[in-house]
C-alpha cells in the first residue's frame, strides 16, 4: 500500500472530520448564546436549571456523551433514532454549546453596565442595545478563549470513532490491520495544517478587531 493510496483514504476520512467540525461550529455558536442567556436569566429557576445542565455536559466525558446519545434511544425504543453521524453531531453541538455559553457569559458580564445604560438613555430597546452595542464588544473580548475551544474541537472530532465513524484517525487505523503504523502518525500532518489555518484565521480576526481599544 503506497503513500498515495494512504493519502487518499486519509483525505476521505478528513471529509468527515471537517463536516463534523463545521456542523458543530455552525450550530453550537448560536445555541451557546441561547444557553448563556438562560444561565443569566433573571428567572432564577431557569438559570439554575441551565447551570446544572452545563455542569453535567461539561462534567461527563464527551466520548461518553456520544455513546449515550447514539445507544440509549436504541435501548429505550428498540431501534436507533439517530444515524451514527447525526448522533455524533448532536452530542458535539450540545457539548460545545455549553462550553461556548460559559465563554459568552464571561464576555457579556465583562461589559460595563454603563454601556447598557447609555443605550437605554438614548431610547434603544434591550434587543438593540445587545445586538448593536454589546455583542461586538463581547466578540472582541472572547476571541482568545474562543480560538482555544475551536482548536480543541478540531482534535475532539477524533472521538467520533467511538461509534465507528470513519474520520481521519479511524481511516489511518484501518491500515493497522495490514500492519501499517505510519499512516496514523501521518494524520498529525493534517491536524497541524488544519490548526495552522485556524490560527492564521483567528490572528487575522483579532487584528481586524484591533482598531479600537476597550
Amino acid at each position: 500500500m503506497g503513500f498515495w493510496e494512504v493519502t487518499q483514504s486519509l483525505i476521505a476520512g478528513l471529509g468527515n472530520t471537517c463536516l463534523l467540525f463545521a456542523l458543530t461550529l455552525v450550530l453550537a455558536l448560536p445555541l451557546g448564546l441561547v444557553i448563556s442567556f438562560g444561565s443569566m436569566s433573571k428567572f432564577k429557576p431557569l438559570a439554575y436549571l441551565v447551570k446544572v445542565f452545563v455542569w453535567i455536559i461539561r462534567g461527563v466525558p464527551l466520548m461518553l456523551q456520544v455513546i449515550i446519545i447514539y445507544y440509549v434511544p436504541g435501548m429505550m425504543f428498540g431501534t436507533p433514532i439517530l444515524s451514527r453521524f447525526s448522533a455524533v453531531v448532536v452530542a458535539f453541538v450540545i457539548n460545545y454549546a455549553c462550553y461556548f455559553s460559559e465563554i459568552y457569559r464571561g464576555g457579556i458580564e465583562s461589559i460595563p453596565k454603563g454601556q447598557y445604560e447609555a443605550g437605554k438613555v438614548l431610547g434603544l430597546t434591550r434587543t438593540q442595545v445587545f445586538f448593536k452595542i454589546v455583542l461586538m464588544q463581547v466578540v472582541k473580548r472572547i476571541m482568545a478563549p474562543m480560538s482555544n475551544e475551536v482548536i480543541t474541537l478540531v482534535k475532539d472530532t477524533a472521538l467520533a470513532r467511538v461509534i465507528m465513524i470513519v474520520e481521519i484517525i479511524q481511516a489511518a487505523q484501518n491500515f493497522a490491520a495490514y500492519g501499517l503504523m505510519w499512516p496514523l502518525f501521518y494524520t498529525a500532518v493534517f491536524y497541524l495544517a488544519f490548526v495552522g489555518i485556524l490560527t492564521l484565521l483567528f490572528g487575522y480576526l483579532e487584528k481586524k478587531l484591533d482598531y479600537y481599544k476597550a
Binding site: 460595563p112 454603563g114 454601556q115 445604560e117 447609555a118 437605554k120 438613555v121 438614548l122 431610547g123 452595542i133 461586538m136 464588544q137 472582541k140 479600537y212 481599544k213 476597550a214
Partner: peptide, 16 residues
Amino acid sequence: QNIMGLVFQQFNLFPQ
C-alpha cells in the same frame, strides 16, 4: 425616554 437626556460621569461612549 426621548424627553430626557443624560450625560454620565464616565462618558460611556461606544468604543467600537
